[in-house]
Amino acid sequence: MKSLEELAKIRERMQSKVVLREGTNTTRIVVGMATCGIAAGARPVLNALVEEVANRNLNDHVAVTQTGCIGMCRYEPIVEVFENDKERVTYVKVTPEMAREIVEKHIVGGKPVVEYTIGAVDAK
């Protein structure tokens, strides 16, 4: 089994950074993980977001969190992005591929992927 010493090394690596991290999250990516979200495929979407944020070293200011039922089950998996001083952006029927694109274009690039938002999908 993977050794707990490896965990201890992770701790050592992290300790220097911890002070900086606290309270510095400015963006929250929230995934609906109630029964409806899970059944519609939210788990791989969540994992894609966590991976993409980690791979791009965004953890200092981007937090990926889970929530319960958002109340629009037919649109699941739903991902909402909350940024300081900006209006919330709601993405619907998200796939892992779309999730990675949202991180790239919206979180990193600063431009919401309009065609994946609830407004665009609803208008179809």
């Binding site: 965990l7 992770i10 701790r11 992290m14 966590v50 944020v53 980690a54 953890n59």
Partner: peptide, 13 residues
């Protein structure tokens, strides 16, 4: 092992 400094939700963990 991680103590209180490193949350279990850390990507490396």
């Amino acid at each position: 092992v991680l103590g209180e400094d490193v949350p279990l939700s850390d990507p490396a963990v």
